[in-house]
Every structure is written in structure tokens, then in C-alpha cells.
Design a protein around this nucleic acid. Sequence first.
DNA 1: GCTTTTTGTTTTGCATGCAAAATGCTAGGC
DNA 2: GCCTAGCATTTTGCATGCAAAACAAAAAGC
Lengths: 242, 242
Amino acid sequence: MDTESAEKRGLTPFPEPVARGALHDRLVARLRDLIIEGELSPGARVPERELCQRFQVSRTPLREALKVLAADGLVQLAPNRGARVAALTVADVEEMFPVMGALEALAGELAASRITEEGLAEVRALHYQMVLHHKRGELAAYFRLNQQIHEKILEAAGNATLAALYQGLAGRIRRARYLANMSARRWARAVEEHEAILAALEARDGTRLGAILEDHLKNKCETVKEALLAEQRKGGQAASNS
Amino acid sequence: MDTESAEKRGLTPFPEPVARGALHDRLVARLRDLIIEGELSPGARVPERELCQRFQVSRTPLREALKVLAADGLVQLAPNRGARVAALTVADVEEMFPVMGALEALAGELAASRITEEGLAEVRALHYQMVLHHKRGELAAYFRLNQQIHEKILEAAGNATLAALYQGLAGRIRRARYLANMSARRWARAVEEHEAILAALEARDGTRLGAILEDHLKNKCETVKEALLAEQRKGGQAASNS
DNA sequence: GCTTTTTGTTTTGCATGCAAAATGCTAGGC
DNA sequence: GCCTAGCATTTTGCATGCAAAACAAAAAGC
């Protein structure tokens, strides 16, 4: 639906009064971006008042949005102590990995048996476009296509519940992936794995696809963990905002 | 501080002014109970004003609670059209089943390798108490123990993320289970499966435990589906409130 | 000089108020 | 007689206001 992701990256200069009825939803998306982009550092308090001024909204919808994000696990709400951005620890990632693995394997199995020729064609197109971005060394574009491919597979699995859960987890680690700088070797390996994913999907071999996806995810998790460790090593001095 | 969280499950008769800072959390729990017990029929609008009067709270915390429940999937929020209790269709259950299966299998594998002797003893105690309730034909008590056992296994798995996701899904079908009347045969079979679960756990056979749990869940899902069909057949005339 | 207490400020949580949208009802037209 | 348009009521969504709790800093005590 929302294909207007152009202004999501750059902060809109004026926060024009958004349509009534969609305010808190927009705020959820906006806050998500802020967290993913690292503008709100993990562990830092969410400055309620400041964000209200920034977005030109009152505290009520903002607080509602925070509740939703808390339910999603992106922020933590302490009673009478406000919201903090949930810090993603290495232990968290190690917890999430087997869960995502199980979900992704399931998605692969379902997708292999259910994907249409049309869907397959779409994945194929996305895949080769992604390979192109890899060859050009365009990491950001690569990530976007990568994500789209996984979303397509989830879509092809035809299980909204599965998709929602997976996306929820993926959203939590997206910030770490955002700042991850893959090594050239790891990147090349990820592309190879994606070749295998496409092959298994075209062969409609669900078991194999599930296994490959799980392995692929393992590597992704390693990347995320390394990124987290690097960030921790650098110290959380990005937290000092104002 | 206030450590009186003992009466969380039982409904407090009077909605006395709850402690500041815990209001919306309490409301989430309260609304959950209302939905599970069927007082708020699936598909019916959530009467905001009415509930405010009932709980003696203003609309702000109630709306916040609804946002959380919406994120959990128990209610659906339509823009400018308020909240409706999410109707659980048979298709939904059929979607949720493989996901819960994958999660439960993972939980079983993890629990089998990680459970302590003490944890095992607790599960054993719960199990035999549950068997007792089965022999006495006490369905409600049986369900409670059953749920506690599964929670213990999840706890033993030592993966909070996994537990949270599973509990979220389980919460969505809890209402259907609440009104489910198992046949004597199915009930007996469920108890047998629980025997096998305990045995596999004691043998610390993760693979077998995972498989058993998945199978057990399958039967549980059949029960839920039957209950849903029975409810649909009876007609949603419980929705006509006023 | 250090700890502790007390006070002032900020922040949080909830209640309330008001405008826009939706819902229901009545009247008018075909 | 049925359908549609207009109006009134209800409901929803957001902004604002106020009291309590947390945070921070300064002053008092040791």
C-alpha cells in the first residue's frame, strides 16, 4: 500500500496536519524510523515533550503510539517512568534467532508449495535486481531488495499470522542491520545463499528451502551480533543528543 | 511499594481507583478477560463510553489499552470507526496452527535440553494434579493446569521472545478454548498425550518432545475449530446487546 | 568534605473538552 | 411504496489541563 517511502528517510520539514484518524498510526511508523535510524538511541529515554513539538501533535496520540511500540517490543514502558528505547543485547539476538529460524523455515516450506508462477517471477526479478546492487556495491539498495524478497516469500506463504510475527521480530533487529557493514566475503556469501533460495523456490523444494533460509538467517544473525558488539565497543555516546 | 498482584486473575468486584501508573495495564488485563469470557462478543463494537463508566476510568487509558490489545490482535481498530472485537474465524485458526506448531516444537526442544531437575519436578507435579482433575471431570481446573504446564515448558525453554510470541497466539484462541466442550474421548487422548510429553521431557528427548507437542497442538486446534463451528452454527445472535 | 534531607522542577498519567466523522432517523422526491 | 437527501445524535480522535510521582539540585547536618 504505502509506496511513498521517499520522504520516510528524510525528516519532513513541516509536519503538516495529517489526516484525522491516522495520526497515531503515522506516529508509530515515524517513531519506528527514528529508532531504526538510531536518532533515538537504545536505552535512552523517549523525550515525549520534544517529540510532540517536533511532530506538532499533542501527547495523547504520541503516547498511544508508544503503547503500540511497547507491545511490539521496540520500547519499554516503566510505570511512572516513561518510555525507553529497548536496547537490543546480544543475548536478545541469540534468543530471537532460533525463533526467527523456525518461522522462516515454516515460511519457506509454505511458500515453496503455494507460490504462483507470477509470484515466482516477481521474486526472480527482485533477486536479479538485488544481485545487480551487490555488484555495484550499493549496500542500502541491496538491503531494500533483500528485505522485499523475504517479504515476498512471506507473502507467498499465505499466512498473515506468520508474516506478522516474523515482521515483528525483523523490525526489532532492523536497527542493528541498518548500521551493519557486511564484509565483502560475508556479503558475497549472502548473495550465494540467495541464489540457493531462488533455486529451491523454483524447484518448489520446501524442505530444502526451509533449511537454506534457516542457514541464511544464521549468517544474518551473526552480522547483526557483530554490528551490536561493534556498537557497544564504540560506546553508547551517541545517546547524548542535546 | 504495592506488591498486591495476587488478585490479577479473579475479577475484582468493585473497580476501586487503581494505583496510578498501572491503570492501562490493568485495563488490558480486564478487557482481555471480558473478551475471553465472551462478554464482549467477537465482531461486536467495543462500547467505549460504557466500559469507561463500568471501570470508572476516563477514555484515555481505556483507549491506550485498546491500542495494546489491537497490537496483540485481540481487537481490530478501524479508523474513525472505533474498535471491534476481533472475530476468530476457522481460517484464522488454520493459519495459527502451523505457526504455533513450529513455536511449540522449538520450545519443546529447548526445554528438553535446558530444564532443571527442579523444573521437571514442578511439571510432574502439575501433570499429576491435572490428571486428577481429568479423573474428576473438572474441565475448568483441568484447563488451568494444562495451561500452567505449557507455560512451565515455555519457561524452561529459557527464551522470553519465544514465550511472548506463543502466549500472544495462545491468548487469541483462548476464548474459543474457554467455550470448548471436549468429548470424553478427545479429552482422554489429550491426557495420554500429556503423559507422553512428560515422558519425553523426563527422557530429555527434545526431538520427540517437539514432535509430540506439535501433534498435541494439532488436536487442540481441532477442538478449537469445532468449538468455533459450533458457535457459528448457533449463530452470532449473542452479539445483539442492546 | 561528605552524606543526607528538603525543596523546586520536570515529567508522567489521567481526566476533560471540543471538533470532525460516522450513525441513525426523518422527510422529501420519484 | 421505495429510495435518497438532509438533519440530529452519537461516537471517535485529538488537544489541553491538572495532580502525583520521579528527577535534580541546593542546603543542612555530621
